Simulated assay, not measured.
Amino acid sequence: MATLEAFRSFDFDGDERWRQYEANIEIPPGRDRDSVLKKFKAKWYKREIDPDFDIAQAVPASSASTAPQRAHTSRDVPKESTDASAASPPEHQSTPAAASPPPTPTPSASRKARPGKTASTERNLFVLHVLQLLLGLGAVQPLFWLVSARSWKAFLAVSALCHLYKVIIKHGVPQLRPFPGALKQWVLPASSSTDFQYLMLCMLFLQSRPLALVVVPIWTLALYHAVAYAGSRFGSTRLWQQYGAKLQHILSAYQGQALIFNAAAEIGAGILLLLGLLTPQRSIMLAFVYWRAFLPTRYNTPDAAGYHRQVWQIIADKTRPVLQAVPMLRIPIDFVKRSFDQPR
């Protein structure tokens, strides 16, 4: 099956998130490390890459029954999106499915147990992702301004709903009592996910003028998720095998580059907001919140930090000659860098 082939061809060694996760796996003495790692790879792949992946394809039942009681990690590595797929970047993505059942939340954390993924929720998410793709194309098309403006607001509204849905799937519905302790207990883990951050991004720009680079990362993750679901649902059809499987394979092969591309788009949107301060359409508050809250959060979120740091390093390399020629520019840059490096 295409999904199993994607799992076998996935570059685990080249994925920084897997390496971080693997470093925290503790395997009890006497266990076969290769078989245990294979099981954890399958679980991690299902949680981070393809929620529709069948672990039994990679780990036979006999192997699963002899799995460790269990080997565990000292921490859970956050993912780029709670719904990432075999063809999907692990946010993102505003991603926002776990291989093993999440810890049961305390009554103060949520009103009910986390619902997790079901066939109906996956179908609902697929519909939302398709709407994101259509509205995103309408928002960035340059021919009809009215269509672009209306599609922009509809895209952000649908995307906010989609990411809120994913956050609730993963973290449950927050409880307000006792306030504010219960809400804080829910927000702390939820806010570290790409889906929560993209939800805030959508709300932040909902009343602003269209900005294409804001659409890019959300749209990219929606594409990965939609293709993954379509592959699991229609993978046996001849039409999908001729066209869809090839697209899914290409997306899977370039998922790392897609996440770097998303990080570049997020940073690029921030730069456009700064340049927009020189125009009559400037939004000082929007630019301030984006640079003071959203970008630093992405920079320090484990599932996005590596990609953001790569993009900032590229920018630093490209601008080094300018900074050497105009040393005064280092003052605001150093100020921004310090604000990004502060723990959050």
Rank of each mutant, 00 (worst) to 15 (best):
Gln185Gly: 05
Ala139Trp: 13
Tyr45Met: 05
Phe179Thr: 03
Lys38Cys: 09
Val336Tyr: 05
Lys43Leu: 12
Ile271Thr: 01
Gly256Leu: 05
Gly276Tyr: 10
Lys337Pro: 00
Phe179Glu: 04
Phe234Gly: 12
Asp11Phe: 12
Pro107His: 15
Leu204Ala: 09
Leu295Met: 14
Thr82Met: 01
Gly268Asp: 01
Arg75Phe: 12
Leu221Asp: 11
Ser252Gly: 09
Ser191Asn: 00
Pro327Trp: 10
Asp52Trp: 11
Arg233Val: 08
His163Ile: 06
Glu122Ser: 07
Ser85Asn: 10
Arg320Met: 00
Ser236Pro: 08
Ala253Tyr: 13
Tyr307His: 07
Pro210His: 11
Ile25Leu: 04
Ile55Phe: 07
Arg150Ser: 13
Ala265Val: 05
Ser339Gln: 02
Ser193Gly: 14
Leu4Phe: 08
Glu26Val: 01
Met200Thr: 04
Lys170Ser: 14
Gly244Ser: 12
Phe10His: 02
Ile168His: 01
Leu143Pro: 11
Glu80Asp: 04
Pro180Lys: 07
Arg114Trp: 06
Leu213Gln: 13
Ala113Val: 07
Val311Ala: 03
Trp145Ala: 05
Arg75Ile: 10
Gln281Cys: 01
Ala157Asp: 01
Lys38Asp: 06
Leu273Phe: 08
Trp152His: 15
Arg309Tyr: 03
Val336Leu: 08
Gln257Ala: 14
Glu22Asn: 00
Met285Pro: 15
Tyr21Arg: 07
Val322Lys: 06
Asp13Val: 10
Tyr229Leu: 13
Ser148Asn: 05
Ala190Cys: 03
Phe53Tyr: 09
Ser9Val: 11
Gly276Val: 07
Glu5Tyr: 05
Val173Lys: 05
Leu128Thr: 02
Ala226Arg: 03
Val289Gln: 09
Gly268Glu: 06
Gln248Met: 13
Trp240Met: 11
Arg338Ile: 03
Ser159Thr: 08
Lys153Asp: 12
Val214Trp: 08
Ala6Tyr: 06
Thr297Asp: 03
Leu221Val: 02
Leu188Pro: 04
Arg75Thr: 12
Gln342Val: 11
Ile169Gly: 06
Tyr243Arg: 02
Pro332Ser: 08
Cys202Asp: 01
Gly235Ser: 05
Asp34Cys: 10
Asn124Ile: 13
Pro142Phe: 03
Arg233His: 11
Leu4Thr: 11
Gln197Trp: 01
Asp52Pro: 09
Arg111Ile: 05
His129Pro: 14
Trp18Asn: 00
Val36Leu: 00
His72Thr: 04
Lys112Glu: 03
Arg298Asn: 02
Leu278Pro: 13
Ile218Lys: 15
Ala212Ser: 12
Trp240Ser: 15
Asn300Leu: 00
Thr82Glu: 08
Ser192Lys: 14
Ala212Ile: 13
Pro343Met: 11
Ser63Val: 10
Tyr198Gln: 14
Arg8His: 15
Ser208Gln: 15
Gly136Cys: 12
Met203Pro: 05
Arg320Pro: 04
Thr220Ser: 07
Ala61Ser: 04
Pro217Leu: 08
